[in-house]
Amino acid sequence: MSGETTTLWDGMIRLPRRLFGQASDIVRVFELALLYLAALYLPKSWALVFADAAGSLISLSPLGGRTRQWMRSTFPAAEDTDKLAREWLRRPFRDHVVVTRIAENRETADQWRVEQRNPPAILREPGKSVLIVIGHFSRQAVAAVFSPLACPKKLVSVVAPVEQGTHDARALRIRVQLGEMVKAIRRLRNDDVEVVEVSGRSVATRLLHSLREPDKVMIISADVPWPKGRSAGHERPFAGHSSQNFALGGARLSRLAQCPIVMCVPFLDGDRIVLEWSDPLMPAAAGDADSDVRVTNEMLDTIERAVGERPGQYVLAVGHDRYWDPKTGTWQMPVAETVAAPAPAKAAEAATIV
């Protein structure tokens, strides 16, 4: 009986949270719709002012309060964590304005100031196919990675499924944002791009066949949380999260297709877009499945360092179990968590709670 009571009580506690989440997403969908019109009919500077106002409205909600609290615990060395929280909350709205302008041909890549740091020559090597791995940074900056200037070869973009239904407000919000991003990618490439949604059992085979063709560039994200329990998953700490599960698909594609990986960290620096490229990661032997974890860790290490350096430009949840130490450039567990390890008998319980 007590177990049933606990379950009922837990459900009663979670219900207001779910209702608040739905209400928050409904507000954001409404704001995105207004910003779509602003992006179409107003000068860019004015539309961005409205985008900042939309983010400021969200910052007054309970979500804004929690975000400020998380930023204080995750970035204790930052000069102004409240400002950091505002930047993070405003980011999706500012990105939506720019992405909409690209998708509706109000803005083109040749209008941007783009600086490429360490651009890999392998992207222009005839006949060579390359896998570009990015993270979920500012969509305005990410858009430059898809431009012909950065990727002069035939492009394949791997994206999450664009949900066609409106099961709830969150699904509708994601569909609006991701749908505009896909339209912007097509516009940047004049429709000369293959967009592949990660859904269905045959998608891995399709991607592998595509990457084995000459002169192809495929862009994927490595930092998408992967549902626990699925095959080819890898669990590790990431950014502010003490534990998160990730797919090994990028490393596996590189290994089986025998094509190199180049990381790209795009970010905004004033009125410039900076594309920071890594040196190529050459593929492991085709049969070396154990290398997938090592290569995935290398990619995620690069992304989480960039999250620590510019958290306001990361569009996914940063997490608040760990904190960023700018002196060492690493993510750390709070001291209280690392002073004493749990007793052996309690270890499994502690891991479950975390």
Rank of each mutant, 00 (worst) to 15 (best):
G3A: 15
L8M: 13
R14E: 09
F20E: 15
Q22G: 11
D25C: 15
R28P: 05
V29K: 06
F30W: 11
E31P: 03
L34E: 10
L34Q: 13
L35W: 05
Y36N: 06
L37H: 10
Y41G: 13
L42D: 03
P43C: 14
S45N: 14
Q69N: 07
R72E: 05
R72S: 04
S73T: 08
F75E: 04
P76L: 05
A77Q: 13
A77N: 09
A77Y: 08
A78D: 12
D80L: 09
T81A: 06
K83E: 05
L84D: 03
V98I: 04
R101C: 03
E104M: 08
E107D: 06
A109V: 13
W112I: 00
Q116M: 15
R117W: 13
A121L: 11
I122N: 06
I122T: 09
L123G: 12
K128E: 07
V133C: 10
I134S: 09
S138N: 07
Q140N: 08
V142S: 09
S147G: 08
A150I: 06
V156M: 02
A160P: 03
V162W: 04
Q164E: 12
D168L: 11
A171L: 10
L172C: 09
L178I: 12
M181Y: 02
M181P: 02
K183N: 06
N190C: 12
D191I: 09
E194Y: 10
R201E: 09
S202T: 13
A204G: 10
L207R: 01
L208P: 00
K216V: 11
V217Y: 00
V217H: 00
M218H: 02
I219L: 10
I220Y: 00
D223P: 12
P225T: 11
P225V: 14
P225A: 15
P227W: 11
G229D: 10
P237H: 10
F238H: 02
G240K: 03
N245Q: 14
N245S: 12
G249Q: 04
Q258H: 07
C259Y: 01
I261C: 02
V262I: 11
M263Q: 01
C264G: 01
V265G: 00
D271G: 07
R272I: 05
L275S: 03
L275H: 03
M282K: 06
A284R: 00
A285I: 01
A289F: 03
A289V: 02
D290P: 02
T302I: 12
A317C: 09
H320L: 08
Y323K: 01
T330R: 14
T330N: 12
V339M: 13
A340D: 10
E349W: 13
